[in-house]
Computed example of a mutant assay.
Amino acid sequence: MGASRAEGAGKLSNEPLRDADDEGVRGTCEDASLCKRFAVSIGYWQDPYIQHLVRLSKERKAPEINRGYFARVHGVSQLLKAFLRKTECNCQILTLGAGMDTTFWRLKDEDLPPSKYFEIDFPVIVTRKLHSIKFAVSIGYWQDPYIQHLVRLSKERKAPEINRGYFARVHGVSQLLKAFLRKTECNCQILTLGAGMDTTFWRLKDEDLPPSKYFEIDFPVIVTRKLHSIKFAVSIGYWQDPYIQHLVRLSKERKAPEINRGYFARVHGVRQLLKAFLRKTECNCQILTLGAGMDTTFWRLKDEDLPPSKYFEIDFPMIVRRKLHSIKEVWLWPEARAWWHSEPAPGGQQV
């Protein structure tokens, strides 16, 4: 009994000493982070993420300090990238005393993410880092440019455990889906039950991994809310069309979800047929669009590197003139301009 009390007292008496030692170690995180932030700010190396984690100190650092941190960051980065290329990213990386390090995101930007990446540091530093990430999505537990159009940003700060939980869930499901799509070469169907405001479809599309068919099921009120949030279909991406804004004004009238879905089905279906035809003919073909109106298929096919040998559009002269006028001298698309001016119109006149 007496011995155990003595041991307990010894443990308690050592706690303040350990805390004092730890405080000195934690202080090195602050110093190193400020030095890196300053070096990045004056251009020693590129790091778009550190600004979100570390404030910029007003104190100017000596050139020797900047060069020292550059040598350290550059050297470790080169070793890591060589290791990742050698293992084809089938490896794990563990960073001890990670502090405000941003290596994970920088490797991800260079398409060199390891299979698993771990960071270890004092709980107070880890908590501070997670808080600085600002609700996970804003810097990149994961990238999702679409969710901002579907869900408002809450003013309530979420706990780090919640952020990590959602990251694990989204990242895990995303990895499984992408592995499945690559294995089936995208010849598959995906059904999401209780889809809510999920944006998986658009994120898969951005990575060139769209399944043959994608279904979402939820309560009608949620589906309706989601479709309304999409804001007239094109603005987020029933389909992407950066050109239509130059040809057609955005109506203030909100369209019904059924109309949006109908146009999506029509545009998507025609586009799939056209792309299949172009790939089969290796683009050595002609396309003629009757009643083209303000259609932007030509530019969208060109963006996907699938321009046909010749592309014709036919409509009433008034509509053709309006379309040409809307393009505003076509300087936004110089290649399309050159193409148009090189093609003779009926009667030998230039368009």
Rank of each mutant, 00 (worst) to 15 (best):
F312G: 06
F277H: 08
R261I: 00
Q272P: 11
K280C: 10
K275W: 08
Y263A: 03
I259L: 13
R321N: 15
P308C: 09
R266C: 15
D315W: 10
D303M: 06
P307G: 04
N260Q: 03
F316S: 10
R279T: 11
A292D: 01
P317L: 05
N260W: 02
R321M: 15
G291K: 08
K310H: 12
S326R: 01
D303F: 07
L324H: 07
Q272K: 11
K302F: 09
I314H: 02
D295M: 00
F316G: 01
E313P: 11
K275L: 06
F312N: 05
P334I: 01
N260R: 00
E313R: 01
L273C: 11
E335N: 07
L288F: 09
I314C: 10
W299Y: 08
K280I: 03
N284M: 04
R300V: 03
A265D: 14
R300G: 05
L288S: 05
F298V: 01
L274V: 06
C283H: 10
D315N: 12
I319H: 12
A292E: 02
V267G: 12
V267C: 15
Y263L: 12
N284F: 06
E329G: 03
A292G: 01
M294Y: 09
T289W: 07
L290T: 00
I259Y: 14
D305N: 15
D315L: 08
E335R: 02
A276N: 03
S309F: 01
C283M: 08
D303Y: 10
R261G: 07
E258W: 12
L290G: 10
E329H: 02
R321W: 14
F312A: 09
C285P: 02
V270Y: 13
V270R: 14
G293M: 07
S309P: 05
M294F: 11
L278M: 02
R321S: 15
V330W: 10
V330Q: 12
L278K: 01
I314A: 04
V330N: 09
I287Q: 11
D295F: 00
H268P: 14
P308V: 01
E335P: 09
T296I: 04
Q272I: 00
F277S: 09
W331N: 12
F316W: 09
V320K: 08
V320I: 15
R321V: 12
W299K: 03
L301I: 07
R322C: 10
I314F: 06
V320Y: 06
F312T: 10
F277P: 12
C283V: 02
H325A: 02
